[in-house]
């Protein structure tokens, strides 16, 4: 993977309508830049808007205003299809739960995003098995997700990220409800990618990540960037 070009977040604002009709601002006029291989840490209490920020940054949710540039490409101005293609080729995700597509086998979950995008590399099955092997899940390649524990599912999600080797990874509470071993495995996978130049956007309350020094820390609760 070639290191991703600089990410520029410019004047990003997002608010939601409350149940009483009022507006709740999640984040307001956020501007920062991330170099390739940087770590952006999102902090704040549950419900402060960390996931929403990730969704806006990855083009899944439209911002009220502002833009997110990946190099020269403003993801907020891309068409839906353009955003889909961009995500499939450039962004990897690991979520707290619901990481895998239930109808697909473990190995298919690893290569599905690129398969749907029509961007599968040669020997993709071997590469997918290699990724699964790195997270200790090779023997489960043919299993369906409902056969796996929460920790095993997270490891498969990590293998998916390894397989796609994207320039940018969003990790949203990736180790919540995992045992120590699984947490270590997921963390090591993310750090390995980061060492190779992958930009990491991390949101986690797990102390296991305390030793990861972010380039930027964005507290969604206070709106402070540091």
């Amino acid at each position: 993977m070639a290191p991703f070009e600089r990410i520029s977040v410019k004047n990003l604002t997002k608010s939601f309508e409350n149940a009483d009709g009022g507006k709740k601002t999640i984040f307001n006029n956020v501007t920062f830049e991330l170099n390739p291989g940087a770590v952006l840490r999102l902090s704040g209490a549950s419900g402060s808007g960390k996931t929403t920020f990730m969704n806006v940054m990855s083009g899944l949710i439209k911002p009220d205003s502002g833009s997110v540039f990946f190099g020269d490409t403003d993801i907020t101005s891309l068409s839906e299809g353009g955003k889909d293609r961009f995500r499939a080729e450039n962004i990897g995700y690991i979520f707290q739960t619901f990481n895998l597509l239930a109808p697909f086998s473990v190995i298919e979950n690893v290569y599905a995003p690129l398969a749907f995008a029509g961007k599968l590399p040669k020997n993709y099955k071997d590469k997918a098995l290699e990724s699964l092997n790195k997270v200790g899940m090779k023997e489960f390649a043919a299993k369906k997700p409902y056969h796996l524990s929460v920790g095993q599912k997270q490891r498969v999600a990590a293998a998916r990220v390894l397989f796609a080797d994207p320039p940018l990874v969003f990790a949203d509470e990736p180790t919540a409800s995992l045992d120590r071993n699984s947490s270590e495995l997921v963390k090591n996978t993310l750090l390995e990618l980061n060492r190779k130049g992958t930009t990491l956007v991390l949101s986690s309350h797990d102390p296991i990540f305390d030793d990861v020094k972010p380039d930027i820390d964005f507290d969604l609760e206070t709106g402070v960037l540091s």
């Binding site: 899944l60 299809g81 995500r87 749907f116 995008a117």
Partner: peptide
């Protein structure tokens, strides 16, 4: 919905 939302998140387009 969640499954389809995950697909969209992973870059699987609206059309597929």
């Amino acid at each position: 919905k969640r499954e389809m939302a995950l697909m969209r998140t992973l870059g699987i387009g609206k059309l597929p």
